[in-house]
Design a protein around this nucleic acid. Structure first.
Lengths: 123, 123
DNA sequence: CAGAGGCATGGACGAGCGTCAATATCGACA
DNA sequence: TGTCGATATTGACGCTCGTCCATGCCTCTG
């Protein structure tokens, strides 16, 4: 399997794949999913297959300016600060959130088209 | 939160929710996801967040007639028969596959619109 | 009725996950 | 420079998950 960039999946991180708008493969119902593609896609799906991380994505998207710092998310989520940081890290590594540290605060925002690219594969 | 059927999520199985075309909630980026909705959505996403189950969905969809029995899936997947049965059960309980036992064989098929409903929430 | 074959279930085991408390790191500011 | 505050990391714990082997159930066919 070869992506639009001509690289095999194992050579590209989930971050790069999602950020480039190419999660990994053709829509599910169109052709049998290769074993390697399945691992790549599953890794991204595991990132959002958690109630806390789903709410984090939603909270960040709904926050003013489309970005939020950790302190904005702790209380609405009802989890400890280290746990929130952990979940945010997972989402960043999956290529669904960006992290921008400005001074003491770390601002997280949705990767444009990240979720859309993921949704496009589920067909 | 109230679904299109006027029932709270805990009163409806994931199967019913997906089969009715209503996974659970509004698109992620539109409004903050409620805690209960997040649990429901995460449960369905966990079902597909696994390489073996992603390939199963793809294999079933690509199979002639849009359905396949367990014996058709064991070899291409490279897993034991009990393991394949286990994964298929998870997908059925998530409302993404149907199971139709005819004689000795059990035929699995995609729930129409199941994946599309799921994809629609990821926005 | 007895055997065979397709599939599901139960038990077991190692690996990974979600959470927290404690602690470390880093930038702002007096 | 020293303290404070926001965030990240570490270590630990219980729980869930993916997999297999062994076995049970059910249906067809001699």
């Amino acid at each position: 399997m070869v992506t639009a960039l001509g690289l095999v999946p194992t050579e590209r991180s989930a971050v790069e794949a999602a950020a480039s708008g190419v999660v990994c493969c053709a829509p599910l119902s169109r052709e049998p999913l290769g074993a390697e593609d399945a691992v790549v896609l599953a890794r991204i799906l595991k990132a959002i297959a958690d109630p806390a991380r789903l709410r984090l994505l939603s909270l960040v998207a709904a926050h003013e300016g489309g970005e939020a710092c950790v302190c904005d998310l702790i209380e609405p989520l009802g989890l400890s600060q280290p746990t929130v940081s952990h979940h945010l890290k997972v989402l960043v590594e999956a290529g669904l959130l960006t992290r921008d540290k400005r001074g003491v605060w770390a601002y997280y925002a949705l990767v444009p088209g990240g979720l859309d690219a993921l949704a496009a594969v589920l067909r």
